[in-house]
Design a protein around this nucleic acid. Structure first.
Length: 266
DNA sequence: AAGTCCAACAACCGCCGAACC
DNA sequence: AGGTTCGGCGGTTGTTGGACT
């Protein structure tokens, strides 16, 4: 999964980033920001091209980048957004807080693409889709529009995501992102005014950063009900109740299950 | 145990548009 | 107005680990 480090004809290093390089980049951005990626590697003492530094920062080192498995909710949102937006990964990423376009793109190619194909060819789902499109069209002509609902959904994700409700610490997991990275960033806290999220980041730990990103409060309780978060999506026909779903495979495409209590279960 | 296949994903590459001179 | 620089985006590649034979 990692590329063997090498040097191009200009002496610039390519391949996997080391923990030392990561630290240099983090330190530099923390102190000086990232206004000029072209000049950054020279000043930061990195033998990398600016693009490589930018990519590394945005996709892995930047605060609040969420790692780990995609939730069913995120999968559903990606599927829906991809249907309407196509391969506009950066736009799709704006609706999934903490996820980068690169990660979403990889996730799409590795798992969601096949699911999407089945999704289209499955009659049950196909009917549901048709119904959904019609419903969406109707809603557009009335009081809803897709963008506002997706914004609403994103807002609820944001509001219910602990990592965005307070300062966070660079997760130790970041160290494992690069196979060569050590735990040098474990306790590293820094104050970065990040360009992308404009959020001051200081060192306060949040438990279960990767494993429980959504819809749970700090006690682990489900804190978002369908009324809060899903109803607009159901109203638009983006998601459907599982009452018409017979098998587990189909269920996965909806990615959601509503119990009688109307609480979301994952 | 060894070889092969494949999913996953980090990283690179080329292109494009905006900003600047 | 035209050229250059830079950042951002999407497509693609390269490598690894795990599953499978």
């Amino acid at each position: 999964m990692v590329r063997t480090p090498s040097f191009d004809k200009n002496g610039l290093k390519k391949g996997t980033w080391t923990a030392e390089e990561d630290q240099k980049l983090i330190d530099y951005v923390a102190n000086y920001g990232c206004s000029n990626w072209r000049q950054l590697p020279k000043h930061a003492g990195l033998s990398r091209c600016g693009k490589s530094c930018r990519l590394r920062w945005i996709n892995y080192l930047r605060p609040n980048v969420k790692r780990g498995n995609f939730s069913q909710e995120e999968d559903s949102l990606i599927l829906e957004l991809h249907q309407s937006l196509g391969n506009r990964w950066s736009t799709i990423a704006t609706h999934l807080p903490g996820r980068t376009d690169n990660e979403i793109k990889n996730h799409w190619h590795s798992s969601l693409k096949n699911r999407s194909t089945t999704f289209r060819s499955n009659p049950t789902i196909g009917n549901a889709l048709t119904r959904g499109s019609s419903c969406k069209e109707d809603m557009r002509n009335e009081t809803y529009d897709i963008d506002s609902v997706l914004d609403h959904a994103t807002h609820n994700i944001l509001e219910s995501t602990p990592i965005l409700n307070g300062p966070v610490q660079i997760s130790p997991s970041i160290s494992s992102l690069s196979n060569t990275a050590s735990s040098s960033t474990n306790s590293k806290s820094f104050g970065v005014e990040d360009d992308a999220c404009s959020r001051q980041v200081i060192g306060v730990s949040v438990d279960d950063f990767w494993t429980e990103p959504f819809l749970q409060d700090f006690d682990g309780n489900i804190s978002c009900t369908s009324d809060d978060f899903l109803k607009p999506l159901f109203d638009l026909g983006i998601l459907f109740p599982p009452c018409s779903i017979d098998d587990q495979e189909n269920f996965l495409f909806y990615g959601l299950q509503i119990e009688q209590t109307n609480e979301v279960q994952w």
